[in-house]
Design a protein around this nucleic acid. Structure first.
Length: 672
DNA sequence: GGCTGTATAAACATAA
DNA sequence: CTTATGTTTATACAGC
């Protein structure tokens, strides 16, 4: 093999991988990645990772860095403070608890994802509290002041412009006026973006070092919520669908809060995001990721206007169609001239934006609290005293792959409960067989960590097959085209927003390889469906019987200190059935192991909040029915025996005909 | 050490 | 011709 050189010519992704060890490297520390050459793998991977990561991932920080981070934190705190003031929801206690809580998480999630950046929480751990506090207070005050000042100035400026324009009135040539208004609009937009940016920054608390640059790339700083590749999307959201600015905000909000918005149609940039590119931008600049055309889409194009998109005016409440920019400008000048009405609308819009921002802040905070509550043990971070270094090194041998991306796609302070660490630990690819089975409750796990996977560049601990299945099952029709599957992947997992060539190939490979995936010719082409029976059938003996497996997993997961609650969480996520989802009781951990079967019970899997999918899933029989609906290559007939549409599937193959509602995760006990 | 399941990579085939 | 979609084959790993 040694196809490396060859592959390089074919696609950027592969080459990047080998060279940098993004996917493969991180996967198994060279295991999978080294496929090209057994011996060489590890070595190469190791070298690459060391050199790349070593520089910036070590836990130690220079004084300068510390200061930088402090400032960043101060900035964020200030922003938050501002917001809270605005919303009247100042809850210092809340804030504190949140921070301390996140501090605990940091080690794993953050460290793995962005070794080179410490979160404020971590900073706190490193610095002495009094020190930090003094600094923070100082800077906070400063920042707050500055921010307030800034906003004030902006407002004044706007006001001024409004006035001048009013005076200038229509006396000026239309063009001039148009320009002025344009400038005004842009400024307004800029300001809004700035504010949004602040909010977003707030959201990705803990992350820093993104240049708070201004207008140049407002949204670029909103990392974790949006993967670089999604930016265009976001912008489109704002600029295209003829939505007022508020909508864009909403979108972002959605993103942040967890709904799958971004990648809806996310057209993965055709093989353009080799890991390498990420690496080159440790600071999170997504530039590389965004192909020219993408970036251009949101860059101010010569002939574009923030209030003009998709041929129509995007002034709030106005959807007048305009042939071209010129016409639009005219329209703008006539319909939205500087009058009381427009000004008022402007103000309203500002308020809307503010409200949304506040709302976003609140929701974000709530989410944070929820996550920390559910996933983290408020316990002391003692084990992580040196989180970054340790975890980065331990769990992610190749930390390299992550930093970059994480930088680009910031890291969420959250971390997948339970499995999260597992996945992180194994790092790799869904390559954890056990995880697969064990994770069968994928939907539940997914539901719980939906947010996490969506934003964090962490490889989900599921096999491709299970992911594909999940994607398909989440659909009302239970069928998806290949492209839709791709989209689901990118939408649900930040991880799959890169290395597209690799995982897409894997997806296709899996679809073809596994009998459980059935291709059905449809009116609009071919779609893929899941043959639940096959799927269950192929599943290996559940780990029910093999405590060792479970044990191993846990031990493996607990790269060190896994406390009971954590384990509980882990177990919970793995065996949702046993524990009511949502509540983890530490004590339950022990009970989990025994339980066995992931599928045993059933069902209830909380669906991903994204709702797009139909929560109510069909029971197995129905499934099969549906699946069969489509005619299909009779080939595997005997195997998958379509069985009567409704009738109990073949007993032999399908254990519980009656199926409890178990939906997907059914049972595997049938076999055993 | 053999099996099995999975991940990756890649060569091909085929249809749009 | 290019691209997307599918199929297949080969190799490497991990767990049993």
């Amino acid at each position: 093999m040694m196809v490396e050189s060859a592959s390089e010519t074919i696609r950027s992704a592969p080459s990047g991988q080998n060279g940098v060890g993004s996917l493969s490297g991180q996967a198994d520390g060279g295991g999978g990645g080294s496929s090209g050459g057994g011996a060489a793998g590890p070595a190469a991977g190791g070298a690459g990772r060391d050199s790349a990561v070593g520089a910036d991932s070590n836990g130690e920080m220079s004084p300068a860095e510390l200061l930088h981070f402090q400032q960043q934190q101060a900035l964020q705190v200030a922003r938050q403070f501002l917001l809270q003031q605005a919303s009247g929801l100042s809850s210092p206690g809340n804030n504190d608890s949140k921070q301390s809580a996140s501090a605990v998480q940091v080690p794993v999630s953050v460290a793995m994802m962005s070794p080179q950046m410490l979160t404020p929480q971590q900073m706190q751990q490193i610095l002495s509290p009094p020190q930090l506090q003094a600094l923070l207070q100082q800077q906070q005050a400063l920042m707050i002041q500055q921010l307030q000042e800034y906003y004030k100035k902006q407002q004044e400026q706007l006001h001024l412009q409004l006035l001048t324009q009013q005076q200038a009135g229509k006396q000026q040539p239309k063009e001039a006026l148009g320009n002025k208004q344009l400038a005004f609009q842009q400024q307004l937009l800029q300001m809004q973006q700035l504010q949004q940016q602040h909010l977003l920054n707030l959201q990705r608390q803990g992350l820093v070092s993104l240049q708070p640059s201004q207008a140049s790339g407002p949204l670029q700083t909103l990392p974790q919520a949006v993967c670089p590749t999604d930016l265009p999307q976001l912008w489109k959201g704002e600029g295209a669908p003829g939505q007022p600015a508020e909508d864009s905000v909403k979108q972002e909000g959605l993103d942040l809060t967890g709904t799958a918005t971004t990648a809806t149609s996310f057209a993965a940039p055709p093989k353009v995001s080799p890991p390498l590119s990420h690496h080159t931008l440790p600071n999170g600049q997504p530039t590389v990721l965004t192909p020219r055309r993408d970036s251009s889409s949101h860059e101010e194009m010569p002939g574009s206007h923030p209030l003009y998109g998709h041929g129509e005016c995007k002034w709030p409440g106005c959807e007048t169609l305009c042939e071209d920019l010129g016409q639009f400008i005219k329209h703008l000048n006539t319909e939205h001239a500087l009058d009381d009405r427009s000004t008022a609308q402007c103000r309203v819009q500002m308020q809307v934006v503010q409200q949304l921002e506040i709302q976003l802040a609140k929701e974000s905070e709530r989410l944070q609290a929820m996550m920390t509550h559910l996933h983290m043990r408020p316990s002391e971070p003692k084990p992580f005293s040196q989180p970054v270094t340790v975890s980065a090194a331990d769990s992610f041998p190749d930390g390299l792959a992550h930093p970059p991306t994480s930088a680009a796609a910031p890291v969420t302070p959250l971390r997948p409960p339970g499995l999260g660490s597992a996945s992180l630990h194994s790092g790799g690819p869904a390559r954890r067989r056990s995880s697969d089975k064990f994770c069968s409750p994928i939907s539940s796990e997914l539901a719980q960590n939906h947010e996490f996977y969506k934003n964090a560049d962490v490889r989900p601990p599921f096999t491709y097959a299970s992911l594909i299945r999940q994607a398909i099952l989440e659909t009302p029709d239970r069928q998806l085209t290949l492209n839709e599957i791709y989209n689901w992947f990118t939408r649900m997992f930040a991880y799959f927003r890169r290395n597209t060539a690799t995982w897409k190939n894997a997806v296709r490979h899996n679809l073809s390889l596994h009998k459980c995936f059935v291709r059905v010719e449809n009116v609009k082409g071919a779609v893929w469906t899941v043959d639940e029976r096959e799927y269950q059938k192929r599943r290996p003996p559940k780990m029910t019987g093999s405590p060792t497996l479970v044990k191993n997993m846990i031990s493996g997961l607990s790269y060190g200190a896994l406390n009971a609650s954590y384990q509980a969480a882990l177990a919970e996520s793995s065996f949702p059935l046993l524990n009511s989802p949502g509540m983890l009781n530490p004590g339950s951990a022990s009970s989990l192991l025994p339980l066995g079967h992931d599928d045993a019970g059933a069902p209830v899997e909380p669906l991903p909040s994204n709702g797009s999918s139909s929560p109510p899933r069909l029971s197995p029989p129905q499934y099969s029915h549906q699946v069969q609906v489509k005619e299909e290559p009779a080939e595997a007939e005997e195997d998958r025996r379509p069985g009567p549409p409704l009738g109990p599937p073949n007993p032999s193959t399908v254990g519980p005909p009656e199926d409890r509602d178990l939906e997907e995760e059914l049972p595997g006990e049938e076999l055993s």
